[in-house]
Design a protein around this nucleic acid. Sequence first.
DNA 1: TTGAAAGCGCTACCAC
DNA 2: GTGGTAGCGCTTTCAA
Lengths: 347, 347
Amino acid sequence: MTSLSNQRLPRVTIREVAQRAEVGIKTVSRVVNNEPNVAPATAARVRAAIEELRWEPDAHASNLRRTTTRTRSVGLLLGNVANPFSATIHRAIEDTAVHRDVAVFASSLDEEPEREIAAVEAFLRRKVDGLILTCIAESQEYLADLVPPEMPIVFIDREPASFTGDTVHSDNFGGSRLATRHVLGFGHRRLALLIDRREIWTARERERGFIAALEEFGVPSDAATIVADLSDRDAAERAVTRLLGMPDAPTAIVSGQNLITVGAVHALRRLGRHHDIALIGFDDLELADLLEPGISVVAQRPQEMGQVAAARLFASLDAGQRLAPTSIVVPVDLIPRGSGEIRPHRS
Amino acid sequence: MTSLSNQRLPRVTIREVAQRAEVGIKTVSRVVNNEPNVAPATAARVRAAIEELRWEPDAHASNLRRTTTRTRSVGLLLGNVANPFSATIHRAIEDTAVHRDVAVFASSLDEEPEREIAAVEAFLRRKVDGLILTCIAESQEYLADLVPPEMPIVFIDREPASFTGDTVHSDNFGGSRLATRHVLGFGHRRLALLIDRREIWTARERERGFIAALEEFGVPSDAATIVADLSDRDAAERAVTRLLGMPDAPTAIVSGQNLITVGAVHALRRLGRHHDIALIGFDDLELADLLEPGISVVAQRPQEMGQVAAARLFASLDAGQRLAPTSIVVPVDLIPRGSGEIRPHRS
DNA sequence: TTGAAAGCGCTACCAC
DNA sequence: GTGGTAGCGCTTTCAA
């Protein structure tokens, strides 16, 4: 805790600019804030002085007295910045933000409710102008007394509970139903669904989609196995290994998430069943097309999600208040590559 | 530009806390800043008042007068936040930062010198406490008059030019030499190296390593082809296709980067040469072990890089000044999986 | 059209 | 130990 004086000594202030331009500081303020009632000649002198002194207004000092304070920063909470899905969303949001000279604070949620709240508090302490949140806490009610009522909030990837705001997410229900229908259409009747913890909204939605498809095809529910709480690759690999060792083992696997898909592929490979058991994943994987068989997936559109979420946030920001909340559902795309088109083996 | 008043009205200030605790505001200030010379009883009263009023000091207002100003935020500039390599570094840095209640601004470089400078300026406007930078500009000299002299800077992934600072990067030279030696050891004598733009420091280092290995094995330089300026998958795919169509085509390919490796694999597949042409990549890929053949790589350790970089940054931050610059080289790991162990075919 | 004065919420300095 | 006063760099208010 020794002294670290942040650009202290050679600081040029508005006063010096005013002196140089031979005007009052208020006039300088008017010029930089594009306020009316400044004579063109005066404004020119001020601008010249700013140039010459290379002055930059101190954003923090301005915001102190200002009623309409903007830090030109937003808080972004993602599942995990290292996950390709999250990272792609992040990039899309950055691309929109950078054009408006807005910087983004990114944090990882790790599916922990405490981290969600801690991250929001950390963003607010830094006076962000808006929030884009992936949530995991049971309820987002806490936002009501934490967040100023005009601050824009967009929920991405998951729907909040007990709090109304803009939301942007994939068609999880429809996508999962589509994936399930796909393998059912190839004749499978013994299916397994592998999903993450049910605390996660998308996991629940994908489970709903799976069940809906089974019902459409009149498949009795005891012909399907649902394994939940799979939050990493290894857990998924173990689950698949165990499933395939059982009597009446499933002939098709629906995976509810990219890490789970990778684990499932590993298990099938190790067991030598990859040409034998159908597999369809949710969310796409790099190199999935080059495996043998290729991995069929229902791909999300994370870039589009990020774009749309950022657009909503900035629309509210421009309006100066939260706009009427909208819920935007981004389509998913079924990509058949082989693994999902394997027909059931006789057992 | 309508009004968006950020938590304005119901703002509780230090004055109210002082009144409530029946002390002067300076005493409240002492308590929150853990300054000495406050009687325990007084401190307790103050803390109670803070609790009751749910007061939080305004960080921006504090920093205005403070000499040792800290925003508890850092700027992180990465190649591309959506690239798995960058994203893993990001996550590792976040993990260190979050424990210290430091938030991180992340930006993408996209290999554009202008973005490098723009990002640094954007970070500085927001008064970050430190910088972790991936650089692309020809020289980092500009930092000298942009960045306050005590502000810690750590360069990650690439060495800066004309500016001395902490640096953390992979053993690019050694790793590339190792990869090249590896295929040379299997008998290859006609090699190709595929790299990104030579403006990128790592591309140059990897080229150096490639050439060094060739020299060690006494391979004449005209037996090797170096293709540069490959910055995306498709460009790499086209380059490989073209290379393999030439007389005296290479029998082994050394890829200088993960996107290039993916492009190369695609090309080899499409040509049906994947069991025929050796391939070794720099930087690891998800699912690389499940391809047939598996893709041999020299893997970097992005997580370790991020950890080490963050450790350096916070060490300087704790010291209150830049520490004597160190250059940390993170080892790489050769992972043989099949593609790099293919022997040369007779031609 | 302009600027002087007050004040944003807090810390630095110094007197008590 | 404690608190008043000045002032950080800017915006706001209001008088000129």
